[in-house]
Amino acid sequence: MGHIPEQQSAQRDARRRPEGAHAGAGQRSAAPVPTSADVARLAGVSRATVSYVLNNATAVRISEPTRQRVQEAADELGYVPHAAARSLRAGHSRMVLMPAPAVPVGLLYSHLFNELQWALRRLDYTVVQFGSLGMSGDDAARAWAELRPVAVLAPGDGTLTPRGVHVLKRSGAKAVVTLGPQRVQGAHALLMDQRAVGHCAGAHLIGRGRTRIGVVVPREPGYETFSAPRLAGVRAAAEACADARVVPLGLGYDERSANQLAVRWGELGLDAAFAYNDEYAMLLLRALQDAGVDVPGETAVMGADDLLLGRLLRPRLSTVRMELPTGQRLAELVDRVVRDPAGTSEVHPLLGVEAVARDST
């Protein structure tokens, strides 16, 4: 009979331990993984209330003191909601997969993507960036599908194929959206017309009396999806001027490549340059000045993206300003497609362009 109090004590300790905790005899057990039930007990609320608070549910009104008590209990225990378990209960995940683009997207697009991630988070989606470099086509789509996202926002750079869209939708993705210059059958397309960027630049330079235009085409692999239509846009603008000619210029994003191009600039006989974007334009402008080429006297230089750094140069850089949608608008589109996946795929033009004339042209 003397051992009964010890048994009762052990039973009380077992009741106090969080769910799933088991102490082996004579062994020191590892710290158990906290559960929502542990948070509920510590905060003095129901598990449903814990779920509402930690999942930012808006359908149920929870007082601010209760929210704070639940959050403090979760912080004390080190508890975070289990995304996979929540997905099983809901029948789908809240994960939006954003595969990494094959090439650097630049400051302008980075700002848009940051806005988009914040806006999706406010709509209770979890944004996951997937490093799929080295993958292409159906292999990339299968790798994305393994994570079972509810939506995929893929770069419209040729990586995703119609078959890949089918694979993603069969795996449970309710929304497949591409963002870039190309659309893919079966997916919604946020279409950015890169030809318009080149046409705008070409028309501006020709309007300034420049007729021998060099168009910088990045040598780095992967840029062709954007650079080729921009070159085509300049050529289309040049068709309106009988004397105009357009010369593609390969340029690597490094000082040596820029200096080599600048050294032979005189023999090229060009009086203007439209670079792929402001970063390449600034690189070329600096090299031309170092080589003794007068900008804009001998050669006008123009970029695209309207970066702040371009305004700090001397001469200030002329550029093509692109009017992109807000991240909030894109997030709302993704959310609408997730809620109504049976709707037909649509094309949404997103790019407005405007020439910004400064000192370099």
Score class of each variant (00 low, 15 high):
160 L>M: 14
250 G>P: 12
59 A>Q: 14
194 Q>I: 00
37 A>I: 15
184 V>Y: 07
325 P>C: 15
315 P>C: 02
318 S>T: 09
52 Y>S: 06
182 Q>F: 11
255 E>K: 11
18 P>L: 07
190 L>T: 02
289 Q>V: 08
222 G>S: 14
169 K>G: 06
36 S>H: 14
7 Q>H: 12
94 R>Y: 04
37 A>T: 14
69 R>K: 15
80 V>K: 08
54 L>E: 00
180 G>T: 01
116 L>I: 03
326 T>S: 15
226 F>K: 11
260 Q>C: 12
198 G>L: 02
303 G>E: 00
82 H>E: 13
237 A>H: 05
77 L>F: 00
226 F>T: 08
242 A>G: 14
113 F>K: 01
279 E>T: 04
337 V>G: 00
38 D>Q: 12
336 R>D: 13
273 A>G: 06
161 T>L: 03
121 R>I: 04
91 G>L: 07
340 D>G: 07
264 R>V: 04
24 G>E: 13
22 H>E: 07
90 A>V: 08
306 D>Q: 05
358 R>A: 03
124 D>R: 09
238 A>I: 09
124 D>A: 01
206 I>Q: 00
60 V>E: 14
121 R>N: 10
277 N>I: 03
357 A>Y: 12
90 A>T: 02
313 L>N: 04
195 R>Y: 03
235 R>K: 15
125 Y>C: 02
43 A>Q: 07
10 A>N: 10
